[in-house]
Amino acid sequence: MARKLFGLVGRNIDYSFSRSYFSRKFVDEGLHDCEYVNFDMADIGNLRDVISRNPDLIGLNVTIPFKQSVLPHLDKLDATAQTIGAVNTIKIHKNGILEGFNTDAHGFTESLKPLLKPHHKSALILGSGGASKAVAYALASLDIACRHVSRQEIDGAIRYDELDSAVELVQIVVNATPVGTFPRVDDCPELPYEKFSANHIAYDLIYNPAETLFLKKAARNGAVTKNGLEMLELQAEKSWVIWNRDI
């Protein structure tokens, strides 16, 4: 039986949601010819070497910090990934072509939709990395205006010291930073949490811990909260569909 190999590219990825998710999926669905492994690398420039050493590879997920820096190493991008400017899924075609996709936007969109009410018209996105770009794309597709919050100098971004009034004026706040991820569970973004209300959705892309300090503080002030687990599951399944086309 020929092996079908899939994997995750990133740095310091022992925690890997993807590996545990797909390994469990393969067992549950009796996919005995499939295997999912981590490719922990210091430099995304090693991507082609990893692929050449693993000829059974069919597809890869991409995580921090390579969702944007991987782009120059791909042969083509689908339209969504090109618009977002970040990739979290790579399909390795039979002819060796590496095609980049973004399934994060799909995962975020579909997991947010059930929470939305007519008054949810604007959002703040904490962070400016690849995941935040997918969130911005998703919000735009839902006709929700958004602005980034960043410590970096980015056109149109709000600084953290400008957030007092900004949080009051929006109805959705998305944490797309790693602040609060296990094991640093006592950390949270510096926000005026007292400005949250029952009109707010606080969404954290982090899934470990299940309830971050960001979510706890927002919930104390009445906000509806959601972590990133469903988004990860949805984007993983979308990746699976992409990898298995034309096999």
Rank of each mutant, 00 (worst) to 15 (best):
L142E: 02
E35W: 00
T83K: 14
I172E: 05
S141C: 08
A236R: 14
E194Y: 07
V135E: 00
Y137P: 01
L115D: 10
E35K: 11
A2R: 15
E233Q: 14
H200G: 08
L139W: 05
A79P: 03
T103H: 09
S132R: 06
I13F: 10
P72M: 04
T83E: 14
H119A: 07
A145N: 11
T225P: 07
L98Y: 04
A79Y: 00
L5K: 07
V179N: 08
A236Q: 08
D186H: 13
I97A: 15
R151F: 01
A86E: 12
L139N: 05
S20M: 03
A198Y: 00
D187A: 03
H32C: 14
N95W: 02
I201T: 04
I64W: 09
E237P: 04
E233N: 14
I84E: 06
K121A: 03
G30A: 02
E162Y: 01
S141K: 10
N175D: 04
D186S: 10
I242S: 01
K117A: 06
V185N: 05
E194L: 04
G228C: 03
G107E: 03
K113E: 15
I206P: 02
L169Y: 05
G228M: 05
Q235M: 14
D49M: 12
A218E: 11
N95R: 06
D186Q: 12
D14S: 13
R53E: 14
L74F: 10
L31Y: 01
T83G: 07
A223T: 00
R220M: 10
L8I: 05
S239C: 09
M231Q: 08
L205A: 02
A42G: 09
I172C: 10
A123I: 09
L191R: 05
N95G: 14
Y15N: 12
I58E: 10
K216F: 00
F66N: 01
E194K: 09
G85M: 12
D78Y: 00
F101K: 11
G96H: 03
T103L: 14
D33N: 12
A42C: 00
S111N: 15
E153D: 15
H120M: 11
S69P: 01
G129N: 07
A86F: 13
V174I: 15
N102H: 06
A123R: 02
R151I: 05
T212W: 04
N38D: 13
T225C: 13
F101P: 09
F39D: 03
G130D: 10
Y160F: 15
I13G: 06
S165A: 11
P65G: 07
A79C: 11
C146Q: 08
K67C: 05
N38H: 06
K117T: 07
L115M: 15
G59N: 14
